[in-house]
Design a protein around this nucleic acid. Structure first.
Lengths: 212, 212
DNA sequence: GGTCAATTTGAGCGAATGTTCAATCAAGGT
DNA sequence: ACCTTGATTGAACATTCGCTCAAATTGACC
């Protein structure tokens, strides 16, 4: 089946060799960063976790911080794509749109908890240039929420006089889920997402049409 | 005035020498932890910031982590005292009580921003025993909010079906203020506190008695 | 002036850190 | 069988880390 594969294939099978090694390093680094933090994780521990040696980890990544950057940028850009898709799929109603943003934000922060947690915790571990990259992505996410809330305010569906604080607080509480969620906890991700949608709507002063 | 002071006074004036040196180390450590994080702050930098040498810092504190512990325990216990006093001073109304908790929580996180930020960021930098100490204090704070929200739910003033999530999210958003507040920002601490009271009441499903 | 305890210092310890590099290995193409 | 190229390795570099300690300094009290 996997005989001659593609014509431009590398010498070794890239699906088992090269790419797999890189992924192993990424995965080991993520687990260590999540459990002990970036500065408490040494390149030796990362290499150990990936089942290799330190010098081989440097074959895939030029530096320790580049591993962190890869993880942070990856999950954050994915989050943007997911949020924008969910918002568009929710139609034009700002209530539905905000609900979709909150629901998918929470969902990703449970499904990819480690990446999300690291991305939200280790911002200071990046140097100025790299940090700005992530900050820009975050600002973009904030804009997504801001625009939807503005829309709801203009349509009179939301009534809060504190738009900026509400948006910031909504994103903050959704993000924090990655810090306490446990797979074996009392609530499933979907139940948490439902609750957070209600909380967010309460924060923007959404007056639910009481029954019909 | 400060002539012979108390009978049991130490040889040197403790108000200018011993205590001041300790305070200088604490202050320098706090600034560095706040700006660069615990693991990116060396004892040498702390000593430099305090205007002394590394060995002298160890005269006041047995280890680097003990400095962190001192800062974290200090601000957290203070927060508890302040919150309980504010709650009691607010009377019996759960709406007033929750407002008092939120207002004072936000206030302390702006007034003592650095300590609060470090206390909320560097939990993992403590070892198990010390971490549990702080976690217990935090649990106590969570209980303060939980009890007030329960009270409001029983009295029918609050209507949220998500008590646990609401309490957690309220504390989270209040705590996060220490992460973004700027003295020269667009809003004064009191204005932020006002907004956060509104947000919190929205989260617990407080149906405001509309005019009168 | 001498005593004693509190304070302050400089030098250095061993361990751990991120990173480098020359050398080896493995396999596909010819 | 050779060549080439990507993959993998062990050893070590320089630096920084938290921390120790014996010695010096200071100032209040007799």
């Amino acid at each position: 089946m996997t005989a001659h594969a593609t014509r431009t294939a590398r010498r070794r099978d890239p699906s088992t060799s090269a790419a797999a090694g890189r992924e192993a390093v990424l995965k080991a680094a993520l687990e260590a960063f999540f459990a002990h933090g970036y500065h408490d994780t040494s390149m030796r521990k990362i290499a150990d976790g990936a089942g290799t040696v330190i010098s081989h980890a440097y074959y895939y990544f030029p530096s320790k911080v580049e591993i962190l950057r890869t993880l942070m940028i990856g999950v954050t850009t994915d989050l943007i794509v997911i949020l924008e898709a969910a918002r568009d799929a929710a139609g034009a109603d700002p209530v539905e749109r905000l609900a979709a943003l909150v629901r998918n934000h929470v969902r990703l922060h449970t499904e990819r908890q480690a990446e999300s947690f690291v991305a939200n915790t280790e911002l200071r571990s990046l140097s100025a240039t790299e940090r700005q990259e992530v900050v820009d992505l975050r600002d973009h996410i904030a804009t997504l929420f801001k625009d939807v809330v503005d829309d709801g305010l203009q349509q009179g569906r939301f009534t809060t006089p504190h738009r900026d604080e509400a948006v910031l607080a909504i994103i903050t509480m959704c993000t924090a889920v990655a810090g306490w969620y446990r797979t074996d906890g009392p609530k499933a991700p979907e139940a948490i997402a439902d609750a957070y949608v209600d909380l967010a709507l309460g924060m923007v002063g959404y007056a639910a049409p009481s029954a019909g």
